[in-house]
Write a protein that binds this DNA or RNA. Structure first.
Lengths: 166, 166
DNA sequence: GTTTGTTGCTTCGGATTCGAAGCATCTGTG
DNA sequence: CACAGATGCTTCGAATCCGAAGCAACAAAC
């Protein structure tokens, strides 16, 4: 099956494990802070943050899902939840009746603003405090390249719905 | 509330976002591979891998949970699942009747072996292929330090159950 | 203008997850 | 030894999550 008997050296393994561990721990702490400060899950926060950064404060569902690496059905669930709380609105797109446009509301921006300082504090304390400037730059560089690579890579034996095969 | 009005520069933000994104994307792909190759979730794989690396192939529940950054109740659920499939055994610890010792079985090791090549292939392709040796070393160094820092840090306003306060 | 295929989202069912509460076992103190 | 507290794990209920299936709107081919 797999023709890759190559094994990893301790540095590679360590880098991999550390990546998983760090992101898990960070996510955990952030999740807690967001829950307490504004009753938001991490996903919900990410969605609001993305919408808040958008020029017109809105996105299509699919783009949001891809952005935060999330399933479509999961996004539907969270979007409904956010809509009920009045933090976003949903409406069919003008140019394409199929797609739903999600937009952040004033209330959504308020929650975002309320939660942000604590969020920054957590990041500062957990992520940046122990690092030198050069470390942050290294992460930015290496992880940025990784992200681009992963985004570009096809979903691994998943996309073959193209071409008419025969 | 939060006395940290400091904001982040683009490099810091980029590093943070890239970290989250990379770990999400990686996790996603790995999860898929594990599911197909051995019908394992990522957590289950992590548990088996940890047990497989242990000198005596066993751990206490709590240590496992802490190791993979997981809730205790969640671990109970997965441990039961793995036990039913015969991949691990569970038994009360000899020296402490309260604690449960989880041990990997031969069958567990088989599944691990069956799944491993594909796992390595995914990592190689997604994580290591686009990186120079120096990049891997940088990740190892910086993320390793981060992990230590996060592990050491108290769970953020959560631990105050120590000392008799008054 | 149909027919066929694609795309965007939702619904559905089931699996996974967590925190709180519950139960046992240990560990100190007197 | 009896007791309060700590510790280790499980059970419970509710929230969250995903993939598969379904539905509606588009697009392409004829």
């Amino acid at each position: 099956m797999a023709d890759t008997p190559r094994s990893f050296d301790p540095t590679e393994l360590g880098a991999y494990f550390a990546l998983i561990e760090v992101s898990s721990l960070l996510r955990h702490t952030v999740e807690q802070q967001l829950r307490e400060a504004g009753d938001l899950s991490y996903v919900q926060f990410q969605l609001l943050a993305r919408l808040g950064n958008s020029p017109d404060g809105s996105y299509r569902m699919t783009d949001l899902a891809d952005g935060v690496v999330y399933s479509r059905s999961g996004l539907t669930y969270q979007a409904q939840s956010l809509e009920q709380r009045g933090l976003v609105t949903r409406a069919p797109s003008p140019d394409d009746e199929r797609s739903t446009t999600v937009a952040i509301t004033e209330q959504g921006r308020d929650v975002l603003a309320k939660v942000f300082p604590g969020h920054i504090a957590v990041l500062d304390e957990l992520l940046f405090e122990p690092l030198e400037r050069a470390d942050v730059e290294a992460l930015f560089d290496v992880l940025g390249r990784l992200r681009d690579h992963m985004r570009a890579a096809p979903p691994r034996s998943a996309a073959p719905r193209r071409r008419k095969t025969s």
